[in-house]
Amino acid sequence: MESEKTKEESKPFEDPEKKPDARQRSVEPQPAYRGEPAASAMVAERLSAYYGAFKALADINISIQQNKITALIGPSGCGKSTFVRCLNRMHEVTPGGRIEGKLLLYGEDVCGRDVDPVQVRRKVGMVFQKPNPFPTMSIYDNVIAGLKLGGRRKSSELSEVVERTLRQAALWDEVKDKLKESGMALSGGQQQRLCIARTLAVEPEVVLMDEPASALDPVSTQKIEDAMEELKERYTVVIVTHNMQQAARISDYTGFFYIENMGDPGRLWEFDETSKIFSSPNRKETEDYVTGRFG
């Protein structure tokens, strides 16, 4: 599947010390994708994350495939959320939060000293567990909130963005007649899709979702999942989920995070195609987890 964007040309972060062969050194998933050749959108190499002296994540090597959905699963406290927060440099916002290792977005270093974290977050958007629309804003204004921060735009252009992103988030038909109403008047599931539209409005490369459907009813969950299926046509999606069946249903790749012993940092225990993880995973711990025998 061809991406609509020409990734080769995108140079989000100009780094004078950038190595031109960065992409060639990216770590491929194991085993490499066997369908059509896919490129890596994000690559982590020996990534470790700390909260002060506590090492929460150790030596994560992963290659997030472009225009695919990657699900991250694992027991609570094993570092999944920490990992996705590293991907858009939100981890460092936590007091004492820091990372070691390398993180690349289309071959460009995301963590370099000269890289503006705000720019990273434009490229790597995030949807949180609890829907968090801006309470005083209308649906319309919620969607374009991020765009407005980036300077003035023509109103016709903004309307276009609102319709496109609300359609992508599978919300348009439900709200097209009440765009001026408050975002808070929507149901929880609609609010979450509004937040997805808001994330998409700034045209990110990668969309991170941290348990986006865990607070929603099954119908809303299904709508979010349908939206995600659409999203991967344009974006690369990483989703943290505790819902095994959700991971099995929607993702192309699955990463299982695991802590071997209490107090150890979380590790990426197994990473493979979703079909492999949910049919015959390589490691016993993965199988114990996905079959619910964990503990």
Partner: peptide, 9 residues
């Protein structure tokens, strides 16, 4: 039970 992996097999 929505079995997966070895349970499904």
């Amino acid at each position: 039970q929505a079995p997966v992996a070895r349970d499904l097999r």
